[in-house]
Design a protein around this nucleic acid. Sequence first.
DNA 1: AACAGATAGTTGCATTTGCAAATAAATGAG
DNA 2: CTCATTTATTTGCAAATGCAACTATCTGTT
Lengths: 165, 165
Amino acid sequence: MPELDDTRREAYRAFLAAHSRLTTAMDKALTESGLLPLTWYDVLVTLEYQEGHQLRLSDLADKVLLSKSGLTRLVDRLVEQGYVERVACPKDRRSIYAVLTYEGQKAREDAWPTYSRLIQGLFGGQMTDGEAKLLTRVMLASACAAEAYMGRPHTIEECARAEEL
Amino acid sequence: MPELDDTRREAYRAFLAAHSRLTTAMDKALTESGLLPLTWYDVLVTLEYQEGHQLRLSDLADKVLLSKSGLTRLVDRLVEQGYVERVACPKDRRSIYAVLTYEGQKAREDAWPTYSRLIQGLFGGQMTDGEAKLLTRVMLASACAAEAYMGRPHTIEECARAEEL
DNA sequence: AACAGATAGTTGCATTTGCAAATAAATGAG
DNA sequence: CTCATTTATTTGCAAATGCAACTATCTGTT
């Protein structure tokens, strides 16, 4: 394995800076508009893309990049707001589905214009089509490498997707 | 401003996933090796690169991407460990310098091999030279856009650097 | 000189998060 | 069938972090 060079060090620092400033700016903009915090939005969209608008809590934790305990409490808050319901799974009584409610769907839709405008303005607008694709490939490769390093099974969606590109 | 398209949405998600998995993997690897946590490392290197191995707390907060209060307490921990000292600034009695100690420098050097191996293995190793440069440019542009959006002065180092590339 | 306003740092407080332990349920080996 | 193991979720607890309020200091205006 080659040594870490300055070019890559700089890329790494830029990556961290971008993440920090981007999430700070977005979260501030969203809460100031009285809209959903980033993590809430993330859960609601994730559910919306699923069949039946539901997902087992563990699977949801993986998708929204949270630990299981973190997710348990995030779902607590969402249930309290009426955006999500907990529904027991009949097949496996250990499992619980998080199910998107109508209010949850509504709240997500309300946030979408602001949300997408922010991502486009602060992130997407900074790159060409080709650059976006390249970025995706590199980011997924890195995420995948980190997964592998942590000893997680390579079955994670991102890894499969990274191979395709 | 064009609408946010799927290509860029995917890039954004990949970006978030990479950040989450990378920092998780790195922090786990470092603490398991009994080395410095990521944020500690970040402070110590930042100081090491400065003239006299010192920096005013506010400036340090900016560099390591932390709020002022967050930094105050991070420095508390580092002082407690003997890695950093607080030194009053004679010119401006409001300001305080964080100064790297010998122990701090030593600790950082001990962590470096593991640290750089991780970044190279999980991040740098996933891209070519050209890709690293492109990534840097795009990331800095995004960080800069976020800064501008937050109404911060454009004087931040990253923004100037982004212009050059 | 005096005061309004900006700036540096710290502290109180609330929030978010993860780890480890606890609980409950499924699975597999013998 | 039974017991050990694995899996899904929750809970106790501690750590990290940001915001707003506070103190101290500096700066510029009158």
